[in-house]
Nucleic acid binder design. Sequence first.
DNA 1: TGTACTGTAACTTTTTTAATTACAGATGAA
DNA 2: TTCATCTGTAATTAAAAAAGTTACAGTACA
Lengths: 135, 135
Amino acid sequence: MNGQFQIAIHILTLLDHANGELLSSEYIAGSININPALVRKEIRNLRNYGLINSKEGKTGGYSLGKAPDNIVLADVYKAVKSHPALGQAKNLPNPACAVGRQINQHLDALAAEVDTAIISKLTKITLADFSQKFK
Amino acid sequence: MNGQFQIAIHILTLLDHANGELLSSEYIAGSININPALVRKEIRNLRNYGLINSKEGKTGGYSLGKAPDNIVLADVYKAVKSHPALGQAKNLPNPACAVGRQINQHLDALAAEVDTAIISKLTKITLADFSQKFK
DNA sequence: TGTACTGTAACTTTTTTAATTACAGATGAA
DNA sequence: TTCATCTGTAATTAAAAAAGTTACAGTACA
C-alpha cells in the first residue's frame, strides 16, 4: 500500500484539533508537508465517505463530518483502501498447472481474511483515541 | 505491498506438491508465468529464511526447507515483508506543528499493531493447510 | 568436457505514486 | 458590483517502485 492512509489520518487529526473551526487545504498541506491540491484530492475521497465536511468560497475550508468518537480507523482504512493489504500478484498463472489453475482464488480468499483481521483491529480504535495522543 | 507474498506462496505450494522431488526455476516460472530469474531471486530470499533448499549443478533444483506443517504463512509474510501493511507516508511532516511533530511515531506504532494482527492471523495457517486445498 | 542447472548482477521497461500547474466555480466582504 | 480567497477538478509532469530481461559465472553430474 502507499501513504494514503497516513495522509488521511493526519488530515482527520488536524481537523479534530481544530474543534470545528475550518482549516484550509493550504494550512493542512503545511503541516503534512505536501501539495495543497493533493490534500484537496484526498479530502474529496474522505468527504464521499462522510468523514469530512467542506465549505467553498472565500471563508471556506474543512471540518470533521462526524464526531471523532464516532469515527473508527477502520472507516478510514476502508475509504482509502485500493488493494488488499497482502498485495496482489499481477501475473496470470498457468491454467495448465493444477496449482496455477486455482491458486488465485485461494490467494484472494486469504487476502480477504487478512483484510478482515485488519478491519477488526482498526474498528476498536476511534479517531478520538488516536487524536487524544497529541493533547 | 506488492505481489511478492503471492509469488512466494505459489512457489512453496508447488514445492509441497512435488513431494521432495526437485523443481527447476524454469518449471516454477512456467506455472506462475513469470521470468525464471525472478523465481530464483525470490527463492534466494526464502532460502535465507530456511523455507527452501536449493541444489546447484546439472541435476539441481529446489525443495522445501521444512515440513509443510511446520511452516506457517506468517513465516512467509515476515520473509517477504518490506513495508508495513498499512503503508508508509514519504513526506516529512512540519515539526513546527503540534500534530506534525509527533504524528509519525504514533502512525508507526499503529502500523506495528496492525502488522501484529496480521501475523497473528497468519500464524494459524500452515503451508500444509493452504496446499491441501489443491489436492 | 559438455550439458543443465543455480546464483547473481546490471540494466531496461512498465506501472504506480506523488507533485505540479492551471483555472473554473463559489462565497463573502469592501 | 467586483475583488479577494477559498474549494473542486482536470491535465500534465516528475519521481519512485516494481517487474521483467539479459547475460554470464559457478557448480555438479554424466
